Amino acid sequence: MSAVVTAVSSNGTYSFTKPNRESITLLAGLGVEGDVHAGVTVKHRSRVAQDPTRPNLRQVHLMHEELFAEVGAEGFEVTAGDLGENITTRGIDLLGLPVGTVLRVGEEAVLEVTGLRNPCLQIDTFRDGLLKQVVGRDEAGNLVRKAGIMSIVRHGGTVRPGDAITVELPSEPHRPLDRV
């Protein structure tokens, strides 16, 4: 199966969910044009409270559509944009990518993967009990975060549903994703 964008979402105001759009424009070094999380420095409230001068490694949030079916099997209805992602994908193991992976999206946009989204308690406000579905433990007891990945924009461009995604892995040794 080819990797593809299934939805794009953005919101100019702080809210948990982001409405779906016909397209979004990615701006190099900033993020999604008009999105509340766009900027050179951190914009997520929890990160701003810690240190507002830190670089924004969370410019664009990507989430795999396959997660919706997984949580749906547990009784949770979730659709594109509901969990605040900017780009919803299908056919790519986002969580298995190493840090520094380059994603070419559509005709022009280039993203660099920086890490995992660290889901917060707002997920349970959206759907009670959902946080336990997107954060858990594997057989060895290691923490597993499933709520998508974060990236920065290396080259801007317009992204639309149906756009292809090409993956370019970084040089080895690969570093596994961790929360950012």
Rank of each mutant, 00 (worst) to 15 (best):
L67K: 07
T13E: 15
T25H: 12
H61D: 03
A140V: 00
N118E: 15
Q133R: 09
K132C: 01
R145F: 01
T101C: 08
L26T: 11
D163R: 00
G81V: 08
P55H: 12
R160L: 06
V8D: 12
R104D: 11
G31M: 10
E85D: 06
L67W: 06
V144K: 12
R90T: 11
V113G: 10
V8H: 09
R45Y: 00
V42P: 01
I152F: 00
V102R: 15
Q59S: 05
I92Q: 05
V8F: 13
T17F: 05
L143K: 14
V5A: 10
G115L: 09
L67F: 06
V32P: 09
Y14W: 14
G72R: 09
G115C: 11
H174Q: 09
F68D: 08
A38L: 06
E33G: 10
R154H: 03
I123D: 05
P161R: 05
S2R: 13
E172I: 01
R137K: 15
G148E: 05
R45A: 15
R127C: 03
V71L: 05
G96Q: 06
S151Q: 04
R58W: 02
V8Q: 13
R54S: 06
L177D: 09
H61P: 03
A28D: 09
N142F: 00
D35N: 12
